[in-house]
Design a protein around this nucleic acid. Sequence first.
DNA 1: TTGAGGCGGGAAATCGTTCTCCCGTAAACT
DNA 2: AGTTTACGGGAGAACGATTTCCCGCCTCAA
Lengths: 351, 351
Amino acid sequence: MTEVTLKEVARAAGCSVATVSRVLGGTRPVGPEIALRVKEAAERLGYRPNQVARALRSRSTGTIGLVLPQITNPFFPSLVREVEHALHAEGRALLLADCDDDPATEAARITALLDRQVDALLVIPVDETHSRDAVTAAAARVPLVLLDRGCGTGTADLVATDNASGMALVLEHLAAVGRRRVCYVGAGGRDTAAVERLAAYRAGAGALDPEAPGRVELGDFSWEWGRAAADRILPFRPDAVVCANDLIAIGVLQRLRQLGVDAPGEIGVTGFDDVPMVGLVDPALTTVRQPVRELAAEAAQLLAGRLNGQRDAPRRSVRLAPELVVRASSAPPRAASARQAASTRPPEEDQ
Amino acid sequence: MTEVTLKEVARAAGCSVATVSRVLGGTRPVGPEIALRVKEAAERLGYRPNQVARALRSRSTGTIGLVLPQITNPFFPSLVREVEHALHAEGRALLLADCDDDPATEAARITALLDRQVDALLVIPVDETHSRDAVTAAAARVPLVLLDRGCGTGTADLVATDNASGMALVLEHLAAVGRRRVCYVGAGGRDTAAVERLAAYRAGAGALDPEAPGRVELGDFSWEWGRAAADRILPFRPDAVVCANDLIAIGVLQRLRQLGVDAPGEIGVTGFDDVPMVGLVDPALTTVRQPVRELAAEAAQLLAGRLNGQRDAPRRSVRLAPELVVRASSAPPRAASARQAASTRPPEEDQ
DNA sequence: TTGAGGCGGGAAATCGTTCTCCCGTAAACT
DNA sequence: AGTTTACGGGAGAACGATTTCCCGCCTCAA
């Protein structure tokens, strides 16, 4: 009554375990009358194959490890959700590991997952440089796809948002609504999200104003930093603040409001990620939406490919284009000329 | 070079696999010189025990399944984080399953995890009634702890916040700041969070105002509903709105501001959960903080107990007391008498 | 009629552990 | 001295599936 095994099904169906395995797995043709008896017996006994035994024999657990910096970072839950759905749709399961933003914990989690014989790993690295050793070591043992963030170059497959083009979209948009005196509130972390967005800002802001690439304040990805940064960028007298993610942008907006600065009338603000909570700030935040579902789907597909023999295909690096979501926080400034305002679509209403 | 097994370590150390297993597992005393040779060989070869084989033999995977309604619900990430840390600290791993708020998916995920031979399950049920069958069936096969939400009575162990006392704290507090004309914006879902909070409101609100228990609007746990509900409760002319969770409260606050209603001057608002984003609304939200870490720790400990033989101990139901966090959104109303205001601690500053 | 080939089915090896026997030898007791 | 423990160690049976052989039978062609 405890656990129905192949052997018991075999006895009930009056045949050998090999035959039962073949019927249930469809591995080899089996005579129709025996096949029926087997299926019936399995059904009647409520047989469920033991995945552990199956894994031991076939050297595949059907399990994928996901290692991420901090599940409490509001960008990750939706990504985790999509990954979970993509994997379960293929009959795989997800082992989740949270690193607390600490590279040492990350390394420990990775080896723990490898010990559990995961078929593959999805890793969102904590730190571009400090994560590298653990990631490359792991990539030598199982297929490994870096997700959302890179980690050195060429160490593993990568599926991430194209941060550079996202930032370019933001800068183009700001130019279109007539903002020139932009500045940047970013994160000083060594993860690629922080690094690439900053680099893209520096590369693109010069087109708006030669001084703009220099007007940069770096902290972390929190709204507390956004609040603090607001005070530090005011001396620049900017007409737009480009933020490295939504949390920072929200903090900036809050502090500006507190200081009585009109946004977007006086200063426009943009974010990055389009996390759910941008829907509740006022003014609604213009931001760059990461293609979360597509990231997850692409990563899952890449993994599936690696697991089906394409183990030694060349490393792939997939960049998915993000989408600019224009909302109220970057509406044309009060002082904008009529020409510019007319040539621009009005920001969409707060959803 | 692919995978170091016990057999290879045994050969390198010049002894049998049984001995190696005993040395590494500490199962039985082994002669000191052989023990040293074994440890050295294992170290040198970089031996890592295959957890799958170990699981098959010892009938324990060291793996725990966590089944939750929606990881994108902002209350869950911190809970998941604490659970993950608690489990990894004991050398276990976490299989995560997201149900999309759908009982059918929930049932499928549960059986998928059981097929994977999880040692135990943590379940945050989607629906008090529709989740019941799957949960009781699963509880018959492995230790199962319901987390944060119940599911019928007596079907499994339970670790949750004491919603009733949390709601009581809110009502007491509102009384203390001199608010009487309260109403409730809740969720009509069949999960216990919704049900218990509503019941506690109905039970306690009568002490403030005989009419209060009747002033109830039910929707779901979203801030969209909070916005909509704000319009529906205004005809009550309340001086306080008690919300079933923080998202609803945030929506209510937003809509009130939009309508030009002064909060907390005219209407006080309270939430429930203390999710991170309450830090960024204005006025800062008075809410009930769930003891997330303690919930996770208690659940992990309960599981550990069940896994160490106390399989048949009587079902436990642990309720942890939440804590009222007083912030600006429930400050005494403008019209409050000096007597009441004086007898009340001023709301703490926005953190 | 007979040998080759296909096909349905079973026996048993295998995956990498853990754990139960069992066997020697040395120490301790009668 | 003889018998019993105690103990260190090995051989091998599980665990529950998959998979490789191999065998008997039936069919078809020579």
